[in-house]
Amino acid sequence: MTHSPSRPNGRTVQLMATCLCDAFFDDVAKATVEVLEHAGCEVEFPENQTCCGQPAFNCGDWPASREVMRHTTRVFEGDKPVIVPSGSCAAMLFHGAPLEFEKEKDLPTVQKLANRTWELADFLVNGLGIEKWPGRFPARIAFHRACHTRGTGSGEAALKLLQSIDGLEVIPFGEAEQCCGFGGTFSVSFPHVSSSMGCLKLEHMTASNPDFIVSGDMSCLMHLGGLADRGGQPVKTLHFVQILQSALHRHG
Protein backbone atom coordinates (compact mmCIF):
# COMPACT_ATOMS: atom_id res chain seq x y z
CA MET A 1 0.00 0.00 0.00
CA THR A 2 1.34 3.39 -0.88
CA HIS A 3 0.40 6.64 0.63
CA SER A 4 0.69 10.19 -0.56
CA PRO A 5 4.06 11.51 0.65
CA SER A 6 2.85 14.97 1.56
CA ARG A 7 -0.35 14.92 3.55
CA PRO A 8 -1.63 18.02 5.34
CA ASN A 9 -0.82 17.99 9.05
CA GLY A 10 -2.57 21.09 10.35
CA ARG A 11 -4.15 21.03 13.77
CA THR A 12 -7.71 21.57 12.71
CA VAL A 13 -8.82 18.12 11.71
CA GLN A 14 -11.92 16.29 10.55
CA LEU A 15 -12.74 13.10 12.36
CA MET A 16 -14.15 10.13 10.53
CA ALA A 17 -15.43 8.10 13.45
CA THR A 18 -16.21 4.98 11.37
CA CYS A 19 -19.50 3.12 11.32
CA LEU A 20 -18.38 0.62 13.96
CA CYS A 21 -17.68 3.38 16.47
CA ASP A 22 -20.93 5.03 15.48
CA ALA A 23 -22.84 1.83 16.18
CA PHE A 24 -20.96 0.09 18.97
CA PHE A 25 -17.81 1.78 20.20
CA ASP A 26 -18.65 5.34 21.17
CA ASP A 27 -15.99 5.14 23.89
CA VAL A 28 -13.31 4.70 21.23
CA ALA A 29 -14.56 7.68 19.25
CA LYS A 30 -14.65 9.76 22.43
CA ALA A 31 -11.12 8.70 23.31
CA THR A 32 -10.01 9.72 19.83
CA VAL A 33 -11.44 13.19 20.29
CA GLU A 34 -9.79 13.61 23.71
CA VAL A 35 -6.45 12.35 22.54
CA LEU A 36 -6.45 14.59 19.47
CA GLU A 37 -7.42 17.55 21.62
CA HIS A 38 -4.64 16.78 24.03
CA ALA A 39 -2.30 16.82 21.04
CA GLY A 40 -3.49 20.37 20.39
CA CYS A 41 -5.99 19.67 17.66
CA GLU A 42 -9.37 21.14 17.08
CA VAL A 43 -11.63 18.27 16.10
CA GLU A 44 -14.49 18.74 13.67
CA PHE A 45 -17.09 16.05 13.28
CA PRO A 46 -19.00 16.31 9.99
CA GLU A 47 -22.48 15.20 11.02
CA ASN A 48 -23.48 13.66 7.72
CA GLN A 49 -20.78 11.02 7.73
CA THR A 50 -21.84 7.38 7.48
CA CYS A 51 -19.44 4.65 6.37
CA CYS A 52 -16.41 4.43 4.11
CA GLY A 53 -18.12 2.00 1.75
CA GLN A 54 -15.71 -0.79 2.49
CA PRO A 55 -18.31 -3.57 2.93
CA ALA A 56 -19.57 -3.15 -0.64
CA PHE A 57 -16.03 -2.66 -1.95
CA ASN A 58 -14.90 -5.94 -0.43
CA CYS A 59 -17.95 -7.77 -1.72
CA GLY A 60 -17.08 -6.76 -5.26
CA ASP A 61 -20.10 -4.47 -5.60
CA TRP A 62 -18.04 -1.46 -6.60
CA PRO A 63 -20.94 0.60 -7.99
CA ALA A 64 -22.60 0.42 -4.56
CA SER A 65 -19.34 1.21 -2.84
CA ARG A 66 -18.69 4.17 -5.12
CA GLU A 67 -22.11 5.55 -4.28
CA VAL A 68 -21.13 5.59 -0.59
CA MET A 69 -17.68 6.97 -1.36
CA ARG A 70 -19.13 9.81 -3.40
CA HIS A 71 -21.25 10.70 -0.42
CA THR A 72 -18.17 10.55 1.80
CA THR A 73 -16.16 12.86 -0.47
CA ARG A 74 -18.98 15.40 -0.22
CA VAL A 75 -19.12 15.13 3.56
CA PHE A 76 -15.39 15.54 3.94
CA GLU A 77 -14.82 18.49 1.64
CA GLY A 78 -11.99 20.95 2.13
CA ASP A 79 -8.35 20.44 2.79
CA LYS A 80 -7.99 19.68 6.48
CA PRO A 81 -6.49 16.38 7.54
CA VAL A 82 -9.07 13.61 7.88
CA ILE A 83 -8.31 11.38 10.87
CA VAL A 84 -9.59 7.83 11.14
CA PRO A 85 -9.18 5.66 14.26
CA SER A 86 -9.13 2.50 12.14
CA GLY A 87 -6.45 1.11 9.88
CA SER A 88 -8.88 -0.51 7.50
CA CYS A 89 -11.25 2.45 7.08
CA ALA A 90 -8.26 4.74 6.58
CA ALA A 91 -6.88 2.34 3.97
CA MET A 92 -10.26 2.33 2.27
CA LEU A 93 -10.05 6.09 1.87
CA PHE A 94 -6.43 6.36 0.75
CA HIS A 95 -6.03 3.08 -1.14
CA GLY A 96 -9.32 1.32 -1.82
CA ALA A 97 -11.20 4.33 -3.09
CA PRO A 98 -8.64 5.34 -5.71
CA LEU A 99 -8.62 1.71 -6.84
CA GLU A 100 -12.37 1.50 -7.36
CA PHE A 101 -12.39 4.92 -9.03
CA GLU A 102 -9.48 4.11 -11.36
CA LYS A 103 -11.72 4.27 -14.41
CA GLU A 104 -14.11 6.96 -13.11
CA LYS A 105 -14.21 10.62 -14.07
CA ASP A 106 -14.28 11.81 -10.45
CA LEU A 107 -11.06 9.98 -9.54
CA PRO A 108 -9.35 13.33 -8.79
CA THR A 109 -11.95 14.16 -6.11
CA VAL A 110 -11.43 10.79 -4.49
CA GLN A 111 -7.68 11.08 -4.78
CA LYS A 112 -7.82 14.47 -3.09
CA LEU A 113 -9.55 12.96 -0.08
CA ALA A 114 -7.11 10.05 -0.14
CA ASN A 115 -4.21 12.48 0.09
CA ARG A 116 -5.66 14.08 3.22
CA THR A 117 -6.41 10.87 5.08
CA TRP A 118 -4.47 9.69 8.10
CA GLU A 119 -4.85 6.69 10.32
CA LEU A 120 -4.81 8.02 13.89
CA ALA A 121 -1.45 6.70 15.15
CA ASP A 122 0.22 7.61 11.89
CA PHE A 123 -1.08 11.17 12.28
CA LEU A 124 0.00 11.53 15.90
CA VAL A 125 3.53 10.29 15.26
CA ASN A 126 4.32 11.06 11.63
CA GLY A 127 1.94 13.98 11.17
CA LEU A 128 2.28 15.84 14.46
CA GLY A 129 5.71 14.53 15.36
CA ILE A 130 4.74 13.17 18.79
CA GLU A 131 7.38 10.71 19.97
CA LYS A 132 6.37 10.07 23.52
CA TRP A 133 3.02 9.82 25.25
CA PRO A 134 2.65 11.17 28.77
CA GLY A 135 1.00 9.47 31.71
CA ARG A 136 0.92 6.02 33.07
CA PHE A 137 -0.76 2.76 32.21
CA PRO A 138 0.51 -0.11 34.29
CA ALA A 139 -0.37 -3.20 32.28
CA ARG A 140 0.96 -5.93 30.02
CA ILE A 141 -0.60 -5.85 26.59
CA ALA A 142 -0.51 -7.94 23.41
CA PHE A 143 -0.65 -5.59 20.42
CA HIS A 144 -2.07 -6.79 17.11
CA ARG A 145 -0.90 -4.72 14.19
CA ALA A 146 -4.15 -4.53 12.28
CA CYS A 147 -3.64 -6.00 8.82
CA HIS A 148 -4.69 -2.96 6.87
CA THR A 149 -1.77 -1.04 8.27
CA ARG A 150 0.74 -3.27 6.47
CA GLY A 151 3.06 -1.20 4.38
CA THR A 152 2.11 2.00 6.21
CA GLY A 153 3.70 3.73 9.17
CA SER A 154 0.72 3.05 11.43
CA GLY A 155 1.70 -0.16 13.21
CA GLU A 156 5.10 1.16 14.15
CA ALA A 157 3.65 4.51 15.18
CA ALA A 158 1.10 2.96 17.54
CA LEU A 159 3.77 0.74 19.06
CA LYS A 160 6.09 3.67 19.55
CA LEU A 161 3.47 5.62 21.48
CA LEU A 162 2.40 2.61 23.52
CA GLN A 163 5.94 1.67 24.43
CA SER A 164 6.66 5.20 25.58
CA ILE A 165 3.92 5.05 28.20
CA ASP A 166 5.13 4.62 31.72
CA GLY A 167 4.32 1.22 33.22
CA LEU A 168 3.13 -0.35 29.98
CA GLU A 169 4.73 -3.51 28.70
CA VAL A 170 4.11 -4.80 25.16
CA ILE A 171 4.58 -8.56 25.11
CA PRO A 172 5.53 -10.48 21.97
CA PHE A 173 3.55 -13.47 20.67
CA GLY A 174 3.80 -16.13 17.96
CA GLU A 175 2.81 -15.81 14.30
CA ALA A 176 2.40 -12.08 14.87
CA GLU A 177 2.02 -11.31 11.14
CA GLN A 178 -1.15 -13.38 10.96
CA CYS A 179 -4.60 -11.93 10.46
CA CYS A 180 -7.30 -12.10 13.16
CA GLY A 181 -9.73 -13.60 10.63
CA PHE A 182 -12.31 -10.82 10.55
CA GLY A 183 -12.05 -9.61 6.97
CA GLY A 184 -15.45 -7.83 6.88
CA THR A 185 -18.09 -9.90 5.12
CA PHE A 186 -15.51 -12.69 4.94
CA SER A 187 -16.39 -13.34 8.59
CA VAL A 188 -19.95 -14.28 7.66
CA SER A 189 -19.40 -15.92 4.28
CA PHE A 190 -16.47 -18.03 5.57
CA PRO A 191 -17.50 -18.45 9.22
CA HIS A 192 -15.49 -21.60 9.84
CA VAL A 193 -12.24 -20.33 8.33
CA SER A 194 -12.70 -16.93 9.90
CA SER A 195 -13.36 -18.31 13.39
CA SER A 196 -10.49 -20.80 13.14
CA MET A 197 -8.14 -17.98 12.23
CA GLY A 198 -9.46 -15.94 15.12
CA CYS A 199 -9.09 -18.76 17.65
CA LEU A 200 -5.49 -19.29 16.59
CA LYS A 201 -4.82 -15.58 16.90
CA LEU A 202 -6.37 -15.55 20.36
CA GLU A 203 -4.34 -18.56 21.39
CA HIS A 204 -1.11 -16.79 20.44
CA MET A 205 -2.10 -13.46 21.88
CA THR A 206 -3.24 -14.83 25.22
CA ALA A 207 -0.36 -17.30 25.56
CA SER A 208 1.47 -15.20 28.10
CA ASN A 209 -1.61 -13.84 29.84
CA PRO A 210 -1.67 -10.20 28.86
CA ASP A 211 -4.01 -7.85 30.72
CA PHE A 212 -5.38 -6.51 27.44
CA ILE A 213 -5.55 -7.38 23.78
CA VAL A 214 -4.92 -4.19 21.87
CA SER A 215 -5.25 -3.15 18.25
CA GLY A 216 -5.84 -0.10 16.10
CA ASP A 217 -8.96 -1.51 14.51
CA MET A 218 -12.22 -2.12 16.35
CA SER A 219 -13.24 -4.65 13.72
CA CYS A 220 -10.41 -7.01 14.74
CA LEU A 221 -11.22 -6.48 18.38
CA MET A 222 -14.95 -7.01 17.92
CA HIS A 223 -14.17 -10.29 16.20
CA LEU A 224 -11.56 -11.50 18.71
CA GLY A 225 -13.55 -10.29 21.70
CA GLY A 226 -16.74 -11.87 20.38
CA LEU A 227 -14.99 -15.18 19.76
CA ALA A 228 -13.44 -15.28 23.22
CA ASP A 229 -16.75 -14.35 24.75
CA ARG A 230 -18.68 -17.05 22.87
CA GLY A 231 -15.95 -19.52 23.76
CA GLY A 232 -16.52 -18.82 27.44
CA GLN A 233 -13.10 -17.29 28.03
CA PRO A 234 -13.64 -13.57 27.64
CA VAL A 235 -10.67 -11.30 27.08
CA LYS A 236 -10.36 -7.58 27.71
CA THR A 237 -9.85 -5.64 24.50
CA LEU A 238 -8.80 -2.05 24.04
CA HIS A 239 -8.19 0.23 21.10
CA PHE A 240 -4.76 1.80 21.55
CA VAL A 241 -6.36 5.22 21.70
CA GLN A 242 -8.20 4.14 24.83
CA ILE A 243 -4.83 3.44 26.41
CA LEU A 244 -3.54 6.84 25.38
CA GLN A 245 -6.65 8.36 26.90
CA SER A 246 -6.40 6.42 30.18
CA ALA A 247 -2.73 7.26 30.46
CA LEU A 248 -3.63 10.93 30.22
CA HIS A 249 -6.21 10.59 32.96
CA ARG A 250 -3.60 9.03 35.21
CA HIS A 251 -1.23 11.80 34.30
CA GLY A 252 -3.20 14.13 36.52
Binding site: C19, N48, T50, G53, C59, A64, E67, V68, V75, S189
Partner: peptide, 14 residues
Protein backbone atom coordinates in the same frame (compact mmCIF):
# COMPACT_ATOMS: atom_id res chain seq x y z
CA UNK B 1 -22.16 -12.58 0.34
CA UNK B 2 -24.71 -10.03 1.52
CA UNK B 3 -26.32 -7.89 -1.20
CA UNK B 4 -25.02 -4.36 -0.92
CA UNK B 5 -27.67 -2.25 -2.65
CA UNK B 6 -29.65 -1.46 0.49
CA UNK B 7 -26.48 -0.75 2.43
CA UNK B 8 -25.37 1.75 -0.22
CA UNK B 9 -28.72 3.54 -0.06
CA UNK B 10 -28.54 3.76 3.71
CA UNK B 11 -24.92 4.87 3.79
CA UNK B 12 -25.48 7.65 1.30
CA UNK B 13 -28.50 9.16 3.09
CA UNK B 14 -27.34 10.73 6.38
Amino acid sequence: TPPMGAFAKLASSP
